[in-house]
Computed example of a mutant assay.
Amino acid sequence: MDPEVLAQTAGTTVVALMATDAWQRTRDGVVALWRRARPAQADEIDTALEETREEILTSRREGDSAGAEDLERDWRRRLRRLLAADPSVARELEEVLAQARASLPEVEQPSVPSVRMHAQASGNARVYQAGRDQHIVER
């Protein structure tokens, strides 16, 4: 999976799993990734995960979807930097999240966000598609 897509998916999934019974398994797996790739940051990440869990539980109780989105963005950014520093952890990250999701009953499994695009152009038509930001400057 593309590292950017994986970071997006993983950030959302990690935060979603924080409010489930699979949280401990998820936390342990994510911290283990950091211990392997960036050992000096592992304890900090462990603390950040626990703090984020408290925040997501509060956000969900209060119906604060904007707060939850901010937390997801934060973890997408952290995971993007981890994957950039050590692309070899990508497969392990996918496995940690897949195992955590699979440990939950199907109705409790967080969905895995995906983007699917299809375009068809003909003649002089132009198609612009993006899974994230897109800036087009035509002159």
Rank of each mutant, 00 (worst) to 15 (best):
W75L: 08
A40W: 08
E72Q: 05
A19I: 05
Q120D: 13
A37V: 05
E51W: 09
R77C: 15
L104I: 12
E55H: 12
R73M: 11
A100H: 02
V5L: 13
E106T: 04
E54M: 14
A84I: 15
G131L: 14
E72G: 01
T13R: 00
V30G: 00
V30R: 00
V137M: 07
P113M: 01
R38K: 10
Q24N: 10
R81S: 15
Q24E: 12
T20V: 02
E138R: 12
L79W: 05
T47H: 09
A130Q: 07
R76V: 07
R36W: 09
R35G: 07
Q41D: 11
A68H: 03
D133C: 13
L83I: 13
D70P: 00
V5P: 05
L83H: 05
Y128I: 12
V107H: 06
T47L: 10
P3R: 08
A66F: 04
E69H: 13
A68G: 08
E44C: 08
T9L: 09
A84L: 14
A121C: 11
E62S: 06
R91A: 10
S114T: 09
R91C: 10
Q8V: 03
E138H: 13
V127F: 10
E94M: 01
A100F: 03
E62V: 06
L97I: 01
R27H: 06
E44V: 12
D46M: 13
T52Y: 03
D43L: 13
T52F: 04
G11W: 01
S88T: 08
L49H: 01
A10M: 11
I45W: 11
E138V: 14
G63F: 06
R60Y: 08
D70S: 02
R81K: 13
R91Y: 11
D43T: 15
Q134W: 11
R73L: 11
L97E: 00
D2E: 11
R27W: 03
R139H: 15
T52K: 02
E55D: 13
A84W: 13
A102G: 06
G29I: 07
D28R: 07
R81E: 15
A37H: 02
D21K: 06
G11Y: 01
R25L: 14
A42Y: 14
Q129S: 15
D70K: 02
P39H: 09
S122T: 15
